[in-house]
Design a protein around this nucleic acid. Structure first.
Length: 480
RNA sequence: GCUCCCAUCGUCUAGCCUGGUCUAGGACACCGCCUUUUCACGGCGGUAACAGGGGUUCGAAUCCCCUUGGGAGUACCA
């Protein structure tokens, strides 16, 4: 069997984390089985769908490395891939269903519907029980009313049978015969409804597996009913667990940073985001945690999905980012730093050699590229606020003579130069031999005078990256 | 309300299908130690879980039932 899977977002907003995960699973499964992954745009909700969102969706997917071979922006194989361009197809099949007596026009007005719903509720009956009202209306009578311009929808004639199917992650799932009523497949404005076009498309596009999140599980009932009516073979259903927030509810905007573009803008590594998302509800057969998705190959199988919802935890994502970041070369990290740091920052005026040295110094101290922003002042700011640690170290009796000596030595140098590591070495030696300052007093003292902090990366390298004028000012501050 | 789904450390999970090797393994986070005359990285170690109750069985985290808890759906949204 050739595997064909699709990711079918609706362009009503930006791609979010949950959607990205679903897309990823589709993509990985197609890749594992040498199948095809297609992107379909579900834009039947005219009011909310926007082409900008579609563009952004494709852009974000591309950034994540989830590439489709069939979609609205590719040569059509089983297209069109935008539902808004397939209305004639949906019409054709709904006409067919009507002629076969499997669907019918319904003239219930919105007001009548509200009344019926309320009545059903008060009688504690299923609210859809009444929908069959126009089932037996004579076709010629219906035709007359349609021609008279009366508003109507097309409803599916539900055979009211129990629906059972085997979900590849949930196992056997059964819906009772009264789960749904005669649901609408074509709206009064002539446009089809999600559950209907989804089935028509998946059928016509020959989808072998429907991989989607669990919030669609109940929709599967209506959809199977439609597959049966269309005489179509059922695809395999794969309902993946939901992604939830702190409150255990379905992940949504109100949970904070949930759109993929946010992470792109924050310069997260797409490989890290994908790696983390992949493991939220799926486990590696060898229990690996940090890996490159492209190397997964056919180890990605449908059997390793977890059934329970997974909580999205940004702390763990940051850890994945840190691990993926560590695998990058200094040059690559410098490239990201250059993107993160504002263009007018003096960082960009430094030599390549300086930047690589700086990058190397800080690589193992960051989780996110933007963390570098916190470290920039280490070398670029002349003064700093004196915190508690500073005030403590600065009062040591050894610190003042130490600062005085360093200042005098620094003043011998060109303001715009940076002291060499060797030079700093000789200063340290002098301080130890001549001024008898050693151990913690020496290293901590030098660090606090020259950098203002009592901890940080390798001191000699750090100082060798700092301009003499800056260091002199810091010494002055220590002596003031 | 009704329908469906889910239930192992705080979190992500392994183990479950094919009961015994599980005094339940790994990862994040947290704590401690080592390393680094700092911090971080790294290494080592620690705290921490089978929701509850009944069965079945010589034996249950694993199989069955019930209870409880959580979630999703219940549209002329997708």
């Amino acid at each position: 069997m050739t595997v064909r899977v699709r990711f079918a977002p609706s362009p009503t907003g930006y791609l979010h984390i949950g959607g990205a995960r679903t897309a990823l699973y589709c993509y990985l499964y197609a890749k594992a089985t040498a199948g095809t992954y297609v992107l379909r745009i579900e834009d039947t909700d005219q009011a909310r769908s926007k082409i900008e969102y579609e563009d952004a969706l494709i852009e974000d997917l591309k950034w994540l490395g989830i590439t489709h071979t069939e979609g609205p922006d590719c040569p059509a194989v089983a297209g069109p891939y935008r539902q808004s361009e397939r209305n004639n197809i949906y019409k054709k099949y709904s006409d067919q269903l009507i002629s076969e007596g499997k669907a019918y026009p319904c003239f219930l007005t919105e007001e009548e519907l509200i009344v019926l719903t309320e009545k059903a509720e008060s009688e504690k009956k299923a609210p859809h029980a009444y929908h069959g009202e126009y089932r037996r209306l004579d076709p010629s009578e219906a035709k007359k009313r349609i021609e008279a311009g009366e508003s109507y929808v097309i409803r599916f004639k539900n055979p009211a049978k129990k629906v059972t199917f085997k979900d590849l992650v949930r196992g056997e799932v059964t819906f009772p015969e009264d789960m749904v009523g005669d649901f609408v497949i074509i709206r009064s404005n002539g446009l089809p409804v999600y559950n209907y076009c989804c089935v028509v498309d998946d059928y016509l596009m020959k989808m072998s597996h429907i991989i989607r999140a669990e919030d669609h599980l109940n929709n599967t009932c209506r959809q199977i009913l439609l597959y049966n009516a269309l005489g179509a073979e059922l695809p395999h259903f794969v309902h993946v667990s939901l992604l939830v927030g702190e409150d255990k509810q379905k992940l949504s905007k109100r949970h904070g940073a949930t759109s993929v573009s946010k992470y792109k803008n924050m310069h997260y590594l797409p490989s890290a985001l994908m790696n983390y998302l992949c493991l939220l509800g799926w486990s590696h057969p060898e229990e690996k945690d940090i890996f490159d998705l492209e190397t997964l190959g056919d180890t990605f199988t449908l059997e390793r999905f977890s059934k329970s919802p997974a909580l999205y935890d940004i702390k763990k994502l940051n850890y994945f980012n840190e691990q993926h970041l560590r695998k990058l070369s200094v040059e690559e990290i410098d490239g990201y730093f250059s993107k993160v740091i504002p263009t007018d920052h003096p960082y960009h005026d430094q030599t390549k050699e300086w930047r690589l040295c700086f990058t190397e110094l800080y690589t193992d101290k960051i989780q996110l590229f933007s963390d570098v922003l916190d470290f920039l002042p280490d070398v670029f700011t002349d003064t700093f606020s004196k915190d508690d640690n500073y005030n403590d170290v600065i009062t040591w009796e050894t610190t003042r003579p130490l600062a005085k000596y360093l200042k005098s030595e620094l003043e011998k140098l060109d303001d715009n130069s940076m002291p060499s590591k060797e030079l700093i070495d000789t200063w340290m030696t002098h301080l130890k031999k001549e001024l008898k300052i050693k151990g913690k007093a020496l290293f901590m003292g030098t660090r606090i005078v020259l950098t203002g902090k009592n901890h940080g990366p390798d001191l000699k390298v750090l100082v060798s990256l700092t301009k003499v004028s800056t260091l002199v000012q810091r010494c002055s501050l220590a002596l003031s």
